[in-house]
Design a protein around this nucleic acid. Structure first.
Length: 368
DNA sequence: GATGCGTGGAA
DNA sequence: TTTCCAAGCAT
């Protein structure tokens, strides 16, 4: 019974849909580095890196990561700092912290072997339903469905979903479950994501190349470019931040490590804080450094202004060179403080906005 | 169940 | 330039 009124998707011949998609995949699949093998560790790393991150961005990180941490045991034995350094620039740093944490758990609870049951995989930090399905289907060919951004878009168009995907998650999960080919779960899930990434794209979908064109309700209604429906978005605030590059008498620079489990947790930064209304940049920097580190400084020349966009706000960092005057630095708003030479900054993991500051410091150092 | 969590590409 | 949103998860 391929087509059933009782499934809630009348007119969907799922046997035909599976066949069409798998045939398309045989010819048009992407050749991706984590697809050449079935090592659960490799696939796990790729799945986590791919969370909210595009394939092209992930590929170089994936290769460097496996060179640096070839096995689960290597990862579990490593300190957190080199783990964050390997993740530097990739964003959502909790992913790296959770990967590290989960590696230790796998050594402890599973004798170093990546678990192969859904409940066990889901229990690992940083692995949710989609990532678990991705790993179990790709590594073990288990029939566990997925619902990532690609699948949401493909399925929303297939059934011409009239609300944003976030308002129909149970229905979309049920559909992903329903159409998953129990005989070829590995290829089917990969094919669904490839279709979304290369054919059923957000803008300008290539419907003339789509194996599901004849079944796609959005295409048949001519509304494929307007689906899926947009999520509601709220305007994001813009913060102005004063940042201090503080030099001591040995020309060392003060950096601090951010609290774990918060924004950019565990990464290093140049200290500073929000510029209040009616406050000058210099006044802000002096105040923040006194509040956060309990030291006196003299605010000097402007080095660079860095604009950076995060998911929920934008910032402008007004960076000034500063001179250390006195007081013993206290880690009041951070985990740790260090004085380091300019050449040593590369050894610490920094967020992207701070990398731009480091580059500016190196340029400045060349000139003087 | 809403919100916090990075960065980069595309339009 | 701005906006959207990518192989989502945790709390």
């Amino acid at each position: 019974m391929a087509c059933s009124e009782t499934t809630g998707w009348p007119g969907l011949d799922i046997v035909e849909l599976r066949q069409l998609l798998l045939s398309w995949y045989q010819k048009h699949h992407r050749d991706l580095p984590w697809r050449n093998q079935r090592n659960p560790y490799y696939i796990w790393v790729s799945e986590v890196m791919l969370q909210q991150t595009q394939v092209a961005t992930v590929i170089p990180y994936f290769h460097r990561w496996l060179e640096r941490f070839p096995t689960i045991d290597d990862l579990a034995q490593a300190e957190l700092q080199p783990v964050l350094k390997a993740w530097e620039g990739l964003g959502y740093y909790a992913r790296a912290r959770n990967l590290h944490k989960a590696a230790k758990l796998i050594i402890k609870n599973y004798n170093g072997f990546f678990p192969n049951s859904l409940a066990e995989v889901l229990s690992l930090p940083g692995i949710g339903r989609t990532t678990a399905g991705g790993i179990l289907s790709a590594a073990f060919n288990q029939p566990v469905s997925i619902l990532d951004g690609n699948v949401k878009r493909v399925l929303s168009r297939l059934i011409a979903l009239s609300v944003p995907p976030s308002q129909a998650l149970p229905q979309l999960w049920a559909l992903s479950d329903h159409i998953l080919d129990p005989d070829n779960p590995r290829d089917f899930n990969q094919a669904l994501m490839d279709l979304g990434a290369t054919v059923c794209t957000r803008a300008n979908p290539k419907c003339d190349q789509c194996p599901w064109q004849g079944y796609c309700q959005a295409y048949n209604k001519g509304i494929q470019s307007r689906l899926p429906m947009r999520e509601e978005s709220t305007p994001i605030p813009h913060k102005r931040i004063g940042v201090a590059v503080i030099y001591n008498h040995q020309e060392e620079i003060l950096i601090d490590r951010r609290p774990t489990d918060k924004l950019l947790g565990g990464l290093w930064e140049f200290p500073g804080g929000k510029i209040e209304a009616d406050e000058t940049v210099s006044d802000c920097i002096k105040r923040e450094i006194l509040e956060e580190l309990a030291i006196e400084i003299e605010v000097g020349e402007h080095i660079i202004t860095v604009d950076h966009a995060y998911t929920h706000f934008r910032v402008s960092l007004f960076v000034h060179a500063c001179r250390y005057l006195g007081g013993e630095p206290q880690p009041i708003g951070c985990e740790e403080i260090r004085w380091v030479k300019l050449d040593e900054l590369d050894q610490f993991p920094f967020p992207k906005a701070n990398i731009k500051i480091i580059e500016a410091l190196k340029e400045r150092h060349k000139k003087t």
